[in-house]
Design a binder for these strands. Structure first.
Lengths: 152, 152
DNA sequence: AGTGAAAGATATCGGAC
DNA sequence: GTCCGATATCTTTCACT
């Protein structure tokens, strides 16, 4: 999908304020409300805008444990990668997952409520993934910043 | 600020859909629209809900480079930590920053447009931080999942 | 691609219970 | 906390360019 300048402007504004009204948005980008809304819907249906969310300081009533997990694969066929990544996408505790340079290493950022939940995740999900050679977990003592939107 | 069950429910729903209408929200949590809106405003003004944002696949027109950077400190006085973290908060390219178990290691997730921008960030920000002993950067080849909201 | 009008839905207030 | 009413604003569709 290709974005023109107006689309980029819309995306920028909606990243800055996801609850901006379509009317304000239209005025800011110099379109009529209907034309603007059509673009927003296309961006949503085209997968550029995946959704909207509230930015919350304490995501739940309970504490969160952040675990950074490095997973090394010993098999790297496309089928294994696809199955691995499909499983990752199905696991909501996995916040981020990146395929890193170097070897076939994935780095995962995982959020769970407590150590027991991580143990469950480790046993029932991570260790059962196909082609996994090694799993190495590091725990966060403290969150300095998290999930920021990045530069606008 | 203390959240009761209804507040937690509101937060959960607004994290799942930041553009949910107040009428739907009120119905879902079992309150009248006015009572619900009052709670939402209190959550916003009390800093629990910091804002709303669109979840975007390609935040800008350009590609993004994701770098995971591990920073080892050689001094760990509170003053150094505070100065380090204040600098981190001032840098919008830093998406996540965690203090990890083990040594005085911070892990940063950084998003930049290209390698040149990372080099600039490395030179002008990271390497100038106080008390830094070592900086180790790993680059992401591919993003499997990123910035998901976590389990609801 | 864009505009503009019209209908229905929503937000947001004030006040009463 | 609830409900109700009033008003302004917004969303959404439709017809048209």
């Amino acid at each position: 999908m290709t974005l023109d300048d107006i689309d980029a402007h819309i995306v920028r504004l909606l990243r800055a304020d996801g609850r901006m009204s379509n009317a304000d948005l239209a005025e800011a980008v110099g379109l009529s409300a209907s034309a603007c809304l059509r673009r927003v819907r296309l961006l949503e249906r085209g997968g550029v805008i995946r959704g909207y969310t509230a930015i919350v300081e304490t995501p739940g009533p309970a504490e969160r444990l952040v675990v950074l997990t490095q997973i090394t694969l010993d098999r790297q066929t496309e089928e294994f990668l696809n199955r691995f990544e499909a499983a990752v996408r199905r696991c909501p505790e996995i916040i981020d997952c990146y395929l890193m340079t170097g070897l076939s290493d994935y780095v995962l950022k995982i959020e769970v409520r407590n150590a027991a939940e991580y143990e469950r995740l480790h046993k029932e999900v991570l260790s059962r993934l196909p082609g996994v050679a090694r799993i190495q977990s590091s725990f966060a003592i403290r969150t300095v910043v998290s999930g920021r939107p990045g530069p606008l």
